[in-house]
């Protein structure tokens, strides 16, 4: 196990380096350097050349890459081209926590509601509650989160004429709790469905298992059986889902953030992408890459600890 972890960690560095290299190459393949300031009505080619020289964009590519990596290792991601002279680090320090916070809310929402739905469905197997929650789950699970977001907004607009749009959109800073509700639901709906389905089948399996039959045979109260024996065992695999869900949700909120106008990293990234803000793009890819890699490792380790069938 330890060897496995060490091995995985050792792979981090080359993997991350490869990610950055790949992004770097792809960016260099696209025309333009992203150095032109947004809104610049007039700019001479000579000026562009000078700006590029200023940022070392005229150097040979390997040298540029070397400089970038050397700086990045020291935590210096350079200035954002689009928001010069602000540094990429300062922008990420401001926006990434917002994305993470939204991801955390969505994960909590998904786990709490998903587990509840799943358990209710399982203990009422084939009853109306089961039917409703399974249907809800498959609906949630099929809809991409940005479609979900717009559906929620439309619902609010129809139900609350005059006020719906306001509640659906974040106007600026996230000042009140209402601003978080719809994005959390939109982002959390799909993982909620996954958790509900897992929980349901896991609980159903547990209910049918021998130890539960034994517990029942011993004459224990049904509620006690469910809580003590069924849930305890059935929820362990579900717990392992939380990690990857958080990873996916924390890094996967581009469109939800765009739809609800949340000043997180998502819309920022989409914008830096179109503006070809190279330092920004590289840093975002790097951070997402590291975040995903760490979360995946964590999940696998957890999974190995919990499920004895897995051997590394």
């Amino acid at each position: 196990m330890l060897r496995y972890i060490a091995n995985r960690v050792a792979w981090f560095v080359p993997t991350i380096l490869a990610i950055v290299a790949l992004t770097f190459i792809l960016l260099k393949l696209t025309p333009g350097t992203g150095i032109i300031p947004a809104g610049a009505q007039q700019i001479s080619p000579d000026m562009i050349r000078r700006l590029e020289a200023q940022y070392g964009l005229d150097k040979p590519l390997p040298e540029q890459f070397g400089i970038y990596v050397a700086n990045a290792v020291r935590g210096d991601f350079g200035e954002s081209f689009a928001f010069r002279p602000q540094t990429v680090s300062s922008i990420i320090a401001r926006t990434f926590p917002i994305s993470l916070r939204l991801g955390a809310y969505a994960t909590v929402f998904a786990v709490v509601v998903g587990v509840t739905l799943g358990v209710l469905a399982a203990v009422n197997q084939n009853g109306p509650l089961d039917y409703v929650s399974v249907t809800a789950a498959i609906l949630f699970y099929s809809l991409p989160n940005f479609v979900m977001g717009f559906l929620l907004i439309l619902l609010f607009v129809v139900l609350l004429p005059g006020r719906g749009v306001d509640l659906g959109f974040n106007i600026g800073g996230l000042e009140s709790w209402q601003d978080w509700v719809l994005p959390t639901v939109a982002l959390g709906a799909a993982p909620l469905a996954t958790i509900a389905r897992y929980t349901r089948s896991s609980v159903v399996e547990a209910i049918r298992s021998d130890y539960v039959r034994t517990a029942r045979a011993k004459g224990l109260m049904e509620r006690r059986v469910i809580v003590r024996h069924v849930l305890k065992n059935a929820l362990i695999p579900v717990i392992t889902l939380v990690g990857p869900i958080f990873a996916a949700v924390g890094t996967g909120s581009f469109f939800v953030e765009k739809v609800f106008n949340i000043p997180g990293m998502g819309p920022f990234f989409v914008d830096s992408m179109t503006a070809k803000d190279q330092p920004m793009i590289l840093a975002v890819v790097l951070i997402y890459g590291i975040f995903l890699a760490v979360m995946n490792l964590l999940v696998d380790v957890l999974y190995g600890l919990i499920d004895p069938r897995i051997r590394y």
């Binding site: 306001d166 106007i171 600026g172 106008n261 000043p263």
Partner: peptide
Amino acid sequence: DPITPSSNSVLAFEQGSGDQR
């Protein structure tokens, strides 16, 4: 000066509160 994307400025005008208006 609230920092508000132009697509949402009308919302901030009609429904904004606090300093986000």
